Computed example of a mutant assay.
Amino acid sequence: MNPAPSSEHQDFVDALRRDGFRFVAGEDMRTHLQRHGSLQDWAAFAASWNDLAPDTYLASVGRHRRRRHAVFRVDRDGAIARQPHQPHYQSLNYNALQGDIERWFEPVRDDVANGATLATVLGFCRDFFGLLAPQAPGWHIELHQFRIEARSDEEGQPTPEGVHRDGVDYVLVLLIDRHNIVSGTTTIHTADGSLLGSFTLTAPLDAALVDDARVFHGVTAVTPQDPTREAHRDVLVVTFRAAGMADAIADSDD
């Protein structure tokens, strides 16, 4: 399931082992992704963020976010398969705002889940994260399409729970689009809150690779550049958790 490190993957592996994170510029990320497949449907893939459903859990506390969610699995042979729709669950240990809640979100559309771009992104993650944990028998994958909305009277909160960990092994955050917004800086921290690094995803395919077991991350609030116009930040978040750990959590908590 896990290929031998190529030179470009080894650079990422070294960065995550050394620092716990890596920022990748969009054009560089495009090159890496295209070694794993096609981005031929990128325009339709990106446009699907216009069809996300309101996050009713956050709306209840006056915050504005739209999202869709899907679960995949990677088996020992490396095959990636979508799983039946299921809730997103985090314990209070990882999400003080909405932990210990089974949150049901609208599913990722079939055309997006079955498209070339998503297959390429998941293939990249499988091969890269597999290099970091070659002993993993497989992976439980969750992906989230997020649109954070900023308004003239209310800033958007990409991470309303604050600086946090997701409770997984590895995370990819991939920028799809940012429209009429300022800020949205990603910050990486140690467990005691010390800042390890920061960067801002500004161009399509700008990416953050994160070792979630080692570091904490957060994103600063976004505000409209022009308060008279619609403003949003679109990202794809993909989390990988070793399948054995995911099964144990499901057995004990769900």
Score class of each variant (00 low, 15 high):
H88E: 04
N50R: 14
R73A: 13
R68H: 12
D41H: 10
L52A: 05
D28M: 01
A96T: 09
Q83V: 02
H85D: 15
H85G: 11
H85T: 09
L52T: 09
R65W: 03
L58D: 07
V24D: 00
M29L: 02
L92E: 14
Y89S: 03
A81R: 15
A43F: 12
A81Y: 00
V24M: 01
D77I: 07
A43N: 10
A96P: 04
R68N: 08
A81W: 00
G26F: 00
S48C: 07
R65N: 01
H36V: 01
R67M: 11
V24T: 06
Q90Y: 05
W42P: 02
M29T: 02
H36I: 00
H88I: 07
P87V: 05
P87A: 13
N93W: 06
R35W: 01
N50Q: 15
G26L: 05
H32D: 06
A44L: 10
S38E: 04
Q90G: 07
V74I: 15
Y89N: 04
Q86C: 09
H69N: 10
S91A: 12
E27F: 00
Q34L: 10
R22V: 09
R66P: 01
Y89I: 02
L52H: 11
A59I: 04
I80N: 09
R73C: 07
L33R: 01
N93S: 14
G78L: 08
N50T: 11
H85Y: 05
Y89D: 04
P84K: 07
V24K: 00
R35G: 10
D77N: 14
N95D: 13
I80D: 08
R66W: 08
G62E: 07
W49V: 04
A96K: 14
F72G: 03
N95F: 00
D41T: 06
R67I: 03
E27R: 03
S60E: 15
A59F: 14
A53M: 10
V71A: 13
T56A: 12
S38G: 03
F72H: 12
V74K: 12
A25V: 02
R22S: 13
R35D: 08
A43T: 12
L39A: 06
